[in-house]
C-alpha cells in the first residue's frame, strides 16, 4: 500500500460520502444518474466476488463492503424512497447502458488473463468501470444548474482514478513482478473520460462561477 493508492481510495470513499450526504440532507437526488450508480453496483458485485474466496486484509474487505453497501443504498433511495425517488431526473437520465454492458462483457470474454468465471467477471468489472461514469456526465451536461455537491462527487471520483495511475507507476517502479496491462489501459481510458469535466470544473472554481458543462 503506497500513499497514492491510499489517497486514491480515500477520494473514492469521500466521493461516495459526499453523494450519500447530499441525497440524505437535501432529500433530493437531482442531477444524480441512477444508471451510473447501477453500473457501479454491477462493477462492485463482479469485482468483489473474491470476498468469498480470498482474504487480502481487513482494510480491503472493509472498503469493499462499504462500496457495495453505499452503492446499493443510493440505488434503493433513488428507486424506492418515497420522497427521494420523486426528485430523480428520469426523463434526462436516458443513457442506454446496455450498449456499455454488452461490449464490455464480450471484451472480457476475449481479453483476459485467465479464462475462468471469476477472472472474466473481474475483467468485465475493470472494463465496465472505465465507462460507468458516462451516463452521469451526460446527465450533468443536460442539467443547467449543477449543484456543488454533484460536481464535487464527479471531481472526487475523477481524482481517485488519476491517483490510481500514480499508484501503478509507483508499484511498477518498486515491485519487480508487478504488471497488469489490461487494468492500466482501462484505467487510462477511464481517466481520459474525465479530462473534459476537470477542465470545466477547475475553470468554474477559478472564476467563482457555477459549474455548467457545454452541450
Amino acid at each position: 500500500m503506497n500513499i497514492f493508492r491510499l489517497a486514491g481510495d480515500m477520494m473514492h470513499l469521500f466521493s461516495i460520502i459526499v453523494l450519500l450526504l447530499k441525497i440524505n440532507a437535501t432529500r433530493s437526488c437531482r442531477g444524480v444518474s441512477l444508471k451510473t450508480q447501477e453500473l457501479y453496483a454491477i462493477v462492485f458485485v463482479c469485482r468483489y466476488l473474491d470476498l468469498f474466496t480470498s482474504f487480502i486484509s481487513l482494510y480491503n474487505t472493509t472498503m469493499k463492503l462499504i462500496f457495495l453497501l453505499s452503492t446499493f443504498t443510493i440505488i434503493y433511495w433513488m428507486r424506492f424512497h418515497k420522497v427521494i425517488r420523486v426528485t430523480y431526473d428520469r426523463e434526462q437520465d436516458t443513457f442506454r447502458y446496455q450498449f456499455l454492458i454488452l461490449p464490455c462483457f464480450l471484451l472480457a470474454l476475449v481479453l483476459n488473463n485467465e479464462f475462468s468465471a471469476m477472472e472474466v467477471l473481474w475483467t468485465f468489472s475493470i472494463y465496465l468501470e472505465a465507462v460507468a461514469i458516462l451516463p452521469q456526465l451526460v446527465l450533468l451536461q443536460r442539467t443547467n444548474n449543477i449543484d456543488n455537491l454533484t460536481g464535487n462527487y464527479v471531481f472526487l471520483l475523477g481524482s481517485y482514478r488519476a491517483l490510481y495511475i500514480l499508484n501503478w507507476i509507483y508499484r511498477f517502479m518498486t515491485e519487480p513482478n508487478y504488471r497488469q496491462y489490461l487494468v492500466w489501459i482501462s484505467g487510462i481510458v477511464q481517466t481520459i473520460v474525465y479530462i473534459d469535466f476537470f477542465y470545466y470544473y477547475i475553470r468554474s472554481w477559478r472564476n467563482n462561477e457555477k459549474l455548467s458543462l457545454p452541450a
Binding site: 500500500m1 487480502i56 462500496f67 490510481y164 508487478y178 487494468v183
Partner: peptide, 10 residues
C-alpha cells in the same frame, strides 16, 4: 501481504 497482479486493488 499484497499480490502482484493488481487483484488486491479496489
Amino acid at each position: 501481504e499484497e499480490s502482484d497482479d493488481g487483484h488486491d486493488e479496489l
